[in-house]
Design a protein around this nucleic acid. Structure first.
Length: 276
DNA sequence: TCCCAGGTGTCGC
DNA sequence: GCGACACATGGG
């Protein structure tokens, strides 16, 4: 009976215009959800949740307010769609995953996951996330900085982090002893916040922008990874080789406060082959 | 066996 | 400041 709690739980029906659950969860911005049939299972603000979508309704085992906030459902995406429609090459994404939204993740989890993401692939990042969750939290959510900090590099290596183990460990140790630090970052401007995040071990320009975008909702961040570099070169630089820094500045200037959203459509589009 | 994956740190010039 | 190069790990 207890094992079937999900089946007895009352489910919310959340009406939502322009929301694509699958694309949102599978676009490489979050790593802690697992697909169970047509549904996704994970945790939001520490609460277990099961989600699935039919027609224009999002079904959730967690309260609607929590879901609407987490998935940024209050945001009007029309300005974004207007941009994507205008950009040759990006409009192709709309018929396929219109309604992909940026998730408002926990800042520490985003920092940790994107330290792990460097020179790695999404499948393996998900695997490491699960290993961390199982080892530290009995599979119930993601470990806190303090939990990681009390651990050891050897343990993290056993969980699959490889050479990133000391990076995550040191970052966790710092945040464990400076628990308010992330909130001070949150209050800062993009440039200052970026400098702070860049100072963590294992975080360079790309991961810093991922952390700011996904963990601090800094929508003017524009992470440039290998996929973005490739597709941006093709679409805007006549396929010529361009420094990542230049692509970063180009994206931020061109799309401003929508740069992060455009980046997500670029990334998912490139990775799924919608944009070549 | 080599190359790639949501890159970063380090070293030599 | 810039360009190699190493770095764990698993899949193709």
């Amino acid at each position: 009976m207890y094992g079937q709690a999900d089946d007895n739980m009352k489910t919310m029906r959340i009406s939502c215009k322009d929301f694509h659950l699958a694309a949102t969860i599978e676009s490489g911005q979050v790593f802690g959800f697992t697909k169970e049939g047509d549904a996704y299972e994970g945790r939001i603000a520490g609460k277990p949740v099961r989600l699935w979508q039919t027609e224009k309704v999002l079904h959730s085992t967690a309260e609607a307010g929590l879901i609407r906030d987490y998935f940024d459902l209050e945001r009007d995406l029309d300005p974004l769609f207007a941009i994507l429609q205008e950009e040759a090459g990006l409009s192709k994404t709309l018929p396929v995953f219109r309604g992909l939204r940026l998730i408002k993740q926990d800042s520490w989890e985003a920092i940790a996951c994107f330290i792990i993401s460097s020179n790695n692939n999404v499948k393996r990042i998900q695997g490491i996330w699960k290993n961390l969750s199982l080892y530290f939290c009995k599979g119930e959510g993601f470990p806190t900085p303090t939990q990681i900090a009390k651990s050891h590099e050897r343990i993290l290596r056993q969980l699959g982090l490889g050479y990133r183990a000391p990076f995550l460990l040191r970052t966790a140790q710092f945040l464990s002893t400076n628990p308010q630090y992330l909130e001070t970052i949150r209050a800062e401007e993009y440039g200052a916040a970026r400098e702070r995040v860049l100072a963590f071990p294992g975080i360079g320009p790309k991961v810093a922008d991922c952390a700011l975008l996904y963990g601090f909702q800094r929508l003017d961040a524009f992470p440039v990874d290998v996929w973005i570099l490739r597709v941006m070169r093709k679409l805007y630089f006549r396929n010529r080789s361009v420094p990542e820094e230049r692509v970063h500045a180009f994206g931020r200037k061109r799309w401003g406060s929508m740069a992060g959203y455009v980046q997500q459509y670029l990334f998912h589009g490139a990775r799924t082959g919608v944009i070549y």
